[in-house]
């Protein structure tokens, strides 16, 4: 099943998609270009909120809410704490990015990457429509995690525990150098 351009704009859901995707992309762009470090992190909030909204559109509410809770709730706070503790340069004069000699190759690399992958995606899927779907049942997802995927789940728990202990060990103020 394929969709033509005019059919694309006739579908109401696609206008909703554009209303989410364009601010997400703009915020993503400003995250990596903004000259104000706090604003860059707050643009990341908008961008991650946009991805959460896309997950709701795709019928994955559990993943969407996890993004809101873990990313927007916890990770952003960590970033803001990191900015405050390291006394990052604030204000319009702050230099947060490299100069043109680094920016030009970086822009070239990411543009080429975007172009190649977009071409490959269009070549592989062209304008294939997503078949109608029901939102994923969170109960079903929970049963799958604790049944079929329980060992990866436990491994992730250990990784989080190791990260927690490692974070405490690294950031302790009164760390004595070993004898």
């Amino acid at each position: 099943m394929t969709v033509s351009i005019s059919e694309f704009f006739r579908e109401a859901a696609n206008w909703g998609f554009l209303a989410i995707a364009l601010p997400t992309l703009y915020a993503g762009w400003r995250t990596v270009t903004s000259n104000n470090i706090v604003r860059a992190v707050l643009y990341l909030v908008v961008s991650l909120g946009g991805t959460a909204a896309l997950f709701f559109m795709l019928g994955a509410p559990f993943v969407g809410w996890t993004v809101v809770l873990v990313y927007i709730g916890a990770v952003i706070i960590l970033f803001l704490i990191g900015i405050m503790i390291t006394r990052a340069p604030l204000g319009v004069e702050a230099v947060l990015s490299h100069d043109r000699s680094v920016k030009a190759p970086a822009a070239l690399l990411s543009t080429v990457m975007f172009g190649v992958v977009t071409w490959a995606l269009l070549d592989a899927f062209s304008n294939e429509a997503i078949a109608p779907f029901e939102p994923t049942d969170t109960t079903e997802l929970g049963f799958l995690i604790f049944d079929r995927f329980v060992i990866p789940f436990e491994v992730v728990s250990f990784v989080l525990l190791a990260a927690l202990i490692g974070g405490i060990a690294l950031a302790r103020m009164d760390a004595e150098p070993p004898e």
Binding site: F8, E11, A13, T24, T51, L54, H98, L109, T118, L121
Partner: peptide, 29 residues
């Protein structure tokens, strides 16, 4: 909805992130 529209948003955000990793000076950024 087509599948490509979501995937293109994904690769665009990924390219922005790649650009940011290379150009940013501050470790937090």
């Amino acid at each position: 909805m087509t599948i490509v529209q979501f995937l293109i948003v994904g690769i665009a955000l990924f390219s922005f992130g790649l650009y940011g990793v290379i150009t940013r000076k501050n470790a937090v950024l």
